[in-house]
Write a protein that binds this DNA or RNA. Structure first.
Lengths: 259, 259
DNA sequence: CAACTGATTCCGTATTACGGAATCCGGTAG
DNA sequence: CTACCGGATTCCGTAATACGGAATCAGTTG
């Protein structure tokens, strides 16, 4: 029932504003040629943009141009948003092809923050998705993937802030050395798995989304432990997951070229 | 007769988009609180923004966020536009106070490009303003002001590209040394004047708009030579002109703090 | 000065956006 | 498991409004 009924004047006005962005200045005739909108309509919409402060009239012949106020329309965009934008199509494709839900997460301020999930598109829709929900670093596959593949300095800092933790000790990770060794193993095999003492129903298999050295985010495949072992999951899905990560980075780079 | 009749849905939609920019994500209720618009209207406008690609829905509870596509609404903004935005009010004030028309120009690719003029607001409305019209560097007061106050390296380069010019030789500026000396004099007295062999009706008195070392643009006061000499013009208007330049830079800096 | 190109305004009409009220949905408490 | 509740979503009759063809105006060119 999301049959869209877009508000037309809004669509048109944004079209006009985009057109204004493509040239330092545009006359009415140029705008007419570029947008295909009738001139009276353009005058009305440009007048509106001017009244709202996004554009200004230079002169009758020179036409119109944007003003600094347009920054208010994009100043809130964070790099994270661009990662998510780039990731959504690739993640949806993965879930369409392999049925399993994927999540995208990023480490920030020492915790893992969930950015996006295809849970709602998967037939196996366990667990509700908590947008911006945060998790501890080591317990989760996503956190381990980040720790394993991020810069050494950052890893050192994150582990230090983590360490006095009785739960980790129960898992045999008492010292920096033991954690480092564990992460080195993760790095070697190319994926991380949820740390669990025993009775967790759901496991995660995570990989980093990297551009060069930089770990932009992590992808995690979620599955019930009753269905397959982590090793079986890796056998089947590690390569498709890595392909998804590569596609995300590629889209991100393509965006940069345009902007 | 420019009594504005802004197109309402457009105003509202841009208001909504600005509000979305202020938070990483906003639920419908938050948007309602912030914008004061009725919820059905918000749903319609947000739906429109989503259809146009500027926003996306995260989830029913988490709400909406902007996408990378918003960059298309501001990517065309150049620093020059921001200078002009900052300059227009100050320049208008000058013309209101002193009646004379002011112009703002910037050196680019070895020529002076006109960015803005208050000609249309001045009672002495000689000469039509040619937006983006370009002029040679040395003949004009604006060009000299830029040359005199810009970085030494840049000055050297610009003069080299200028030099084999018979007209300049007629004015006694045959060598790099003579030009340098002339510009040093300009720098000393703080303003530049149109170079003229004899019968030009209009003169210009120009000063730089500087931020630290950087010459962002030049302001020029235009007046008929029959009314006053350049020295008299400087006597009366140099200080107000410099005050205008300072106001422009101040506005520019204030903008930076916000963005 | 005439002719033309392009910007601007007018205004009757049909469409469209509007938003109060009803409904739905998901989370929570009992 | 059910009842409840607050917020999200949809409906739909109405009024307002955006629309754009045609007329007018302004600036430029030959």
């Amino acid at each position: 029932m999301t049959a869209e009924n877009p508000v037309e004047p809004v669509i048109r006005a944004l079209q006009v504003l985009e057109a204004l962005n493509r040239k330092p200045a545009s006359s009415l005739g140029e705008m007419h040629a570029v947008t295909g909108l009738p001139k009276p309509t353009l005058v009305r919409l440009l007048g509106t943009l001017i009244a709202a402060g996004y554009a200004t009239r230079i002169s009758s012949q020179a036409g119109y141009r944007i003003t600094g106020h347009v920054l208010a329309l994009s100043s809130g965009l964070r790099f994270i948003d661009r990662i998510v934008d780039a990731a959504v199509p690739a993640m949806s494709e993965f879930t369409r092809d392999h049925a399993w839900p994927l999540a995208l997460a990023k480490v920030r301020d020492g915790v893992v923050a969930l950015l996006h999930s295809t849970g709602s598109q998967s037939p196996f829709s366990f667990e509700r998705v908590g947008y911006n929900m945060t998790y501890q670093l080591m317990y989760t596959a996503m956190g381990q993937a980040h720790l394993a593949f991020c810069d050494g300095e950052e890893r050192k800092r994150l582990i230090r802030d983590l360490l006095p933790d009785p739960k980790l000790e129960l898992l045999g990770l008492r010292t920096v050395q033991s954690i480092d060794a564990h992460l080195a193993a993760v790095r070697r095999r190319g994926y991380a798995v949820t740390l669990t003492s025993r009775n967790l129903k759901l496991l995660g298999l995570a990989i980093p989304v990297r551009q060069g050295r930089q770990v932009h985010a992590c992808l995690v495949l979620r599955f019930p432990r009753s269905v397959m072992t982590p090793e079986q999951a890796a056998e089947r899905y590690l390569e498709p997951l890595n392909a998804t990560a590569r596609a995300i980075v590629k889209t991100l780079v393509a965006q940069d070229r345009v902007t």
